[in-house]
Amino acid sequence: MSEMDEEAPDVLCELENVQGLVDALTAVRWKRHQDAVIELSEHGIVLIVEESGCLQAKVYLKKELFVRYDYNAEGRPRFGVSLGLFVDCLNAFSVPGHSGVIQIQYPGPDMQLLLKSVDSLDASICAEIRTRIPDTVAWDYNFEPAGTNPLTFTVKSAALKEAIEDLEWPGSSIQITMEPDPPSVTLRAEGHGDLQIDFMYCANSELLIAFQCDHRASFKYKYKFLRASTSNMPSSVIKENRASKLSIGRGGMLKVQHLVSISKPTSHPYVDSAGYQQPGRIAHIEFFVKPEESED
């Protein structure tokens, strides 16, 4: 029996296309020095970052995203890591035009997060990232539907990002209003004057592509927190013309959801041991933004 079998790590997984993982993690990096909590489970890996109890983001990496996912822990181990350092290390494994395979292991001999390239015959890249015990437990966002029917809309990600950038006023807030008649979403900012952007929902809408609202709802959110949910949106999301879903929950809690490709189409797609081609792999990203104040 090998040493690896005798002392199996909590998780040992392999992922193709490192750049896809870099894109997903960069999407939730809204400042230079940022700490993250990583939670492991038999279902996959979740990375959590938050800011002053008002903004939280999660990256869900389900085990189906990996070409290999060996989980040996009991419970759900959690550890803290520098998000910037993690992204910088992953970038060292990303080669333009090459969808390499990276091995991720936790813990190492000194409780490190270990990264290793596994598909090169000429050379191997290894990295060790120091981890720590998380200082705090992530706050409970407690997202619940606002009433019996959900308040949600789906808009093209590029249009959402552009709208939020256009509404910038230092220290300002953005008011999001949903109206059932006529079906519409309004984003409004106030500063030295005011600026308003309307998304109208209709059968031929190319921007607002889904809409559910049975009563008027209006909430304000700090601009810096709302902007963080789109500021580092990967270029792949824009190129693939993806859409983002926004939901308003009880008390005005805003949930913003993006989808990021982890496995991009290649001329030699990965085929598993049974001979089935793996479908496109998607990382789910969620932002939770607490409202500044409510008009309802």
Results as ranks from 00 to 15, higher is better:
residue 44 G to P: 03
residue 35 D to V: 12
residue 16 E to I: 08
residue 165 E to P: 02
residue 18 V to G: 14
residue 61 L to M: 05
residue 143 F to Y: 13
residue 86 F to M: 05
residue 255 K to T: 13
residue 113 L to Q: 07
residue 17 N to T: 09
residue 23 D to E: 08
residue 4 M to C: 02
residue 274 A to G: 08
residue 233 M to Y: 14
residue 194 D to M: 02
residue 97 G to T: 05
residue 146 A to N: 15
residue 19 Q to L: 11
residue 118 V to P: 07
residue 68 R to F: 14
residue 225 F to C: 04
residue 237 V to D: 10
residue 200 M to L: 04
residue 127 A to D: 06
residue 221 Y to E: 03
residue 238 I to E: 12
residue 106 Y to W: 11
residue 207 L to P: 00
residue 29 R to F: 04
residue 121 L to N: 04
residue 149 N to P: 01
residue 140 D to N: 14
residue 226 L to S: 14
residue 63 K to Y: 02
residue 290 K to V: 02
residue 173 S to G: 01
residue 35 D to W: 15
residue 39 E to C: 06
residue 1 M to V: 05
residue 46 V to E: 03
residue 57 A to D: 02
residue 170 P to M: 03
residue 45 I to N: 03
residue 62 K to T: 00
residue 246 L to G: 11
residue 146 A to Q: 15
residue 9 P to R: 13
residue 271 V to K: 07
residue 136 T to K: 13
residue 97 G to W: 15
residue 57 A to T: 00
residue 173 S to L: 01
residue 170 P to L: 06
residue 215 H to W: 10
residue 111 M to Y: 15
residue 47 L to F: 06
residue 30 W to L: 08
residue 252 G to A: 10
residue 165 E to T: 11
residue 75 G to M: 10
residue 261 S to W: 14
residue 118 V to L: 08
residue 3 E to F: 12
residue 43 H to Q: 04
residue 193 G to L: 07
residue 7 E to D: 02
residue 33 H to L: 09
residue 112 Q to T: 08
residue 283 A to I: 12
residue 288 F to I: 06
residue 100 G to Q: 12
residue 115 L to H: 14
residue 184 S to I: 00
residue 126 C to L: 03
residue 82 S to T: 00
residue 213 C to I: 00
residue 24 A to K: 10
residue 149 N to T: 10
residue 8 A to C: 04
residue 86 F to E: 00
residue 245 K to P: 00
residue 17 N to Q: 11
residue 69 Y to G: 03
residue 55 L to H: 03
residue 106 Y to P: 05
